[in-house]
Amino acid sequence: MNKTKVIFDTDPGVDDAMALLFLHHAPEIELVGITTTLGNGTIETTTRNALYLAERFGIDVPVAQGPATPLVGPAGEPPHYVHGHNALGDIPLPDTIAKTVDPRPAHRLIIDLVRESPGEIAIVAVGRMTNLALALREDPEIAGLVKQVVIMGGAFGFHGNHGNVTPAAEANIIGDPLAADEVTGGSWPITMVGLDVTQRTQLTTEYLEALARDGGEAGQFIWDITRFYVAFHHAAGVPNMFVHDSSAVAYLIDPTLFTTRSGAIRVITEGMAIGQTIQKPDGYAFPPGDWDNRPSHKICTEVDAERFKALYRQTILRGA
């Protein structure tokens, strides 16, 4: 089997950890690097979590740290009420971690790995897009060397989904809207997996209990870290847990799980709609405007949630 080499750009994060285990156990994937962003915790917290996850589950790849702030503006306060104060559901974590961070900044690791394997590497980005934007600024030619970029972020109005931080914006995008607009203006092949589909896939308590029972160490770990995350969903009136970051991994492994639409994408970078993602569908005629001369990218509009959940369970059980 020809495996897809993957850089995982992430801010672990409960759902990020679930997505990392999905990548780690998928037979189709060869994970080659992890880069960290701030978001679900400070950059120090998310990097420490990435090192911990890599060490605990034997993921032998470099982990490189991204910047502590977005391209413009302050970092903001992490959403402790969603992921806990340690961003992994407040499960007990060790005082020391043997694995150490790569000396390169995250965007430089991305550039180096892509240049070492031109045309072979996919980037799965499930946090703010700061690292990708910095990589593109420093070495614009890498856009033509990346196999594909799959982004968990955005919302385009399908099934009533427009935002989960404001009425207009999803968390990863509003965390660094300028980076998101620069990245979606790049010529690399992008698929955005937004709230339109990630909130269509929900994991029940029964599903997670079965994963804990049958999925070995990874399955039990997923159960443990999701206790806090599920409680947040319940407090928000959502009966089951949304599956955000693992949806991007699922698209990479099996794009037939999703329906997509193609077109140029812009991100609003100021004003009360900051962070809003808007697509101009291919084939639609409009007067000249800010979408002109932008590359066409895909957004996900529908998902086969049952097949996706079956794939996730099968992959985690494979690791057991």
Rank of each mutant, 00 (worst) to 15 (best):
G154S: 05
L145V: 02
L145H: 10
K147T: 07
G163A: 10
H159R: 11
H159T: 04
E138V: 00
L132K: 03
G144M: 12
V146T: 11
N131H: 03
H162I: 10
N161A: 08
I142M: 04
G153W: 04
V149G: 10
N161S: 07
N164V: 15
G153N: 08
Q148M: 06
E141G: 07
I151C: 11
G144T: 04
I151D: 04
A143G: 14
H162N: 14
E141W: 02
V146K: 03
I151L: 12
I142V: 10
E141A: 09
N164R: 07
V150I: 15
K147I: 10
N164Y: 13
Q148F: 04
E141C: 02
V149D: 13
N161Y: 14
G157D: 12
G163P: 06
L132D: 01
A143K: 07
E138G: 02
A155D: 11
I142C: 04
H162E: 11
I142F: 02
F158V: 11
G157I: 10
Q148L: 02
R137N: 01
K147W: 07
G160Q: 10
L145F: 04
G163S: 09
A143Q: 12
H159K: 12
V150E: 14
L132A: 02
H162C: 06
I151K: 05
L145I: 06
